[in-house]
Structures are given as C-alpha cells and as structure tokens.
Simulated scan of single mutants.
Amino acid sequence: MTHQHGETGHALHLAGPVAVVACLASAAVALFHLRLLVRAASHRGQWFLPAETGHVAVAAGMAVMFAGPLWMTSSALFAAAYLGLALAVLVLLLVHPVCRIPSLWSSCSMLVVEALAMAYMSGAGGRPVGDLTGWFVVVFAGAGLAAVGGLLVRRVAPAWAGAAPVAPVGTRLVMYAGMMLMLVY
C-alpha cells in the first residue's frame, strides 16, 4: 500500500463520516451475504456456500479496514488470511463444477480479485508488496460499470442479457466502490 500511517491510526485516512458510512455499507453487505449463506446452508438453491463465505469474509474485512486499528489491518496475519482466501477461491474456480456456471464463475473470479486486493491493501504487515493500485482500480471500475451495464441491458433487452448475476447490483457496487475508495484515498 502506498499510504503512510501512524501506528496509532486507522488503516485508512478517511474523514470520520466517510469512514463511518463506508464501514456501515461494507458491514451491511457482509450481513446480506451472511443471510444468504444461512439460507443456502438450510436450502438447496443457486447460492454456492464457499462463494458466500468468501463474500462475507471480504465485506467484513472491508468494514474492519475502514474502521479498524492499523495494527490489525496492516498485520501479516490479516494479509495472509486474505491471500489464503484468494488462493482457496482460485482453486475452487479451477476445479469445482459449480464455478463453471457463468454467473458463479464471474462472482468467484471477482472474489479472487477482491481477496487479493485486501491482502495487497493490508500491506503484508506494513512491508511494500509492489504497486498494483492502478491495476486494481481499473478492474474494480470496470466491474462496477459492467454491473450497471448488465442491469441496464437486462431491463432493456432481457432475452439478450442472459442469466441474472448471483449477487445483486447494489451489493456489488458497494463492494467495488469501497475497494476503489480504499485504493485511491
């Protein structure tokens, strides 16, 4: 991460109200996906348990990064946890047949990128890990545009749009906007 922070500060230097709103929005997405995870565990449906678990972990981690203490969010353990999540989801993406469903493939592949971004932003315990910020910003901006574009196409030409995404557009936009806020602020 290219930002410098004092040991007593938060992981991000956002203005109080911005950090609170971003934290609450991320926590709301985590709770939304936790509700889907509980529902998926009790009923068979379109939800894929490992992906929902990953979404809960990333959204909850974002909430912590917006409001948590620097010692936690820039620790090697925090970075390793998200790097491990990214690798686990990548393996699932490559070997699990459910991940071949287009909407789930898209969700799982973005989850890999989100978890990698979380590991990157944690700074691997404060040590530099290279400058991938520009790449992550382009990916999340493109994903946000695709989410909005897909929604518009489904409204205008539903037959042409294909299957609806697994995660609602609102939760995806909160995640991508939050990621971009963390990356560029």
Rank of each mutant, 00 (worst) to 15 (best):
G68V: 03
S122G: 15
A124F: 14
L87K: 02
H10M: 04
M179D: 01
H96I: 13
S103Q: 14
A28H: 14
A124N: 09
M62G: 15
L104P: 03
P69I: 01
L34W: 12
S74Q: 07
P69F: 00
V137C: 11
H96F: 14
F66D: 07
M62T: 10
R35L: 13
M1F: 00
Y176D: 01
A59R: 00
T133K: 07
V91N: 05
A164G: 14
L36I: 12
A117K: 02
V64K: 02
G125K: 08
H13M: 02
V98A: 15
E114V: 08
A117T: 06
V95A: 13
A51Y: 09
L90T: 07
M175K: 00
A79K: 04
E52F: 08
P69H: 02
M110S: 09
V166E: 08
L111T: 00
G123Y: 00
G134W: 02
G126D: 07
T2R: 06
L93P: 02
G134D: 04
Y82N: 00
A28W: 15
H96N: 15
A157Q: 14
A147D: 01
L111W: 06
V18T: 12
C99S: 12
L14F: 14
Y82D: 03
A147G: 11
L12N: 00
F78A: 06
L93W: 10
V113N: 02
A167I: 11
M180T: 10
P50T: 08
V64F: 01
R155D: 08
A143V: 03
T8L: 05
V38I: 15
S122C: 09
H55T: 09
C23D: 06
S122P: 04
L151I: 13
A80S: 13
A86F: 09
L14M: 11
P102Y: 14
V174L: 05
L173I: 11
A147P: 01
M182Y: 12
T171K: 04
T2H: 07
A63H: 06
G54V: 13
V139K: 01
P128V: 01
A167T: 12
L132Q: 09
L70K: 02
A141R: 01
L183P: 00
W105P: 09
